[in-house]
């Protein structure tokens, strides 16, 4: 009846992975990848967040309803950020608004 109990070794492994990925994101920031610096940083952060959600927050062992709830949140976040970019990207994305130049 009580929830799934993860082994301590799993938690330690996830913690170590998160620390290594933190070091990786700092390291990657010092390499000139042009436009891809941002992408790499976000992929690493997304992977770290996934590890936390999946193992620390027990979503892996949660019901389908809980998984759906989590997915809904991420889906609407994607809509928010995606449509923001579509909206601003489709307008004159000038380097500087007139009042500053």
């Amino acid at each position: 009846m009580s929830g799934h109990v993860s082994p301590v070794s799993l938690y330690i492994t996830i913690f170590m992975a998160l620390m290594v990925l933190t070091a990786a994101t700092v390291g990657a920031a010092f390499v000139d990848l042009g436009q891809f610096n941002f992408l790499v940083a976000m992929i690493i952060a997304g992977f770290k967040a996934t590890l936390v959600i999946w193992y620390f927050m027990h979503v892996k062992y949660a019901s389908k309803l809980t998984k759906l709830t989590v997915a809904t949140g991420l889906f609407f976040l994607a809509i928010l950020l995606g449509l923001f970019l579509v909206d601003y990207g489709s307008k004159a994305f000038s380097q500087m608004p007139p009042f500053l130049s």
């Binding site: 994101t25 920031a29 610096n37 952060a45 770290k48 967040a49």
Partner: peptide, 17 residues
């Protein structure tokens, strides 16, 4: 914790190279 995982690269690592 997850919020900070994103805040750290976004605020501290914009362009370090």
């Amino acid at each position: 914790d997850i919020v900070w995982i994103f805040l750290f690269p976004l605020l501290y690592l914009v362009e370090r190279h």
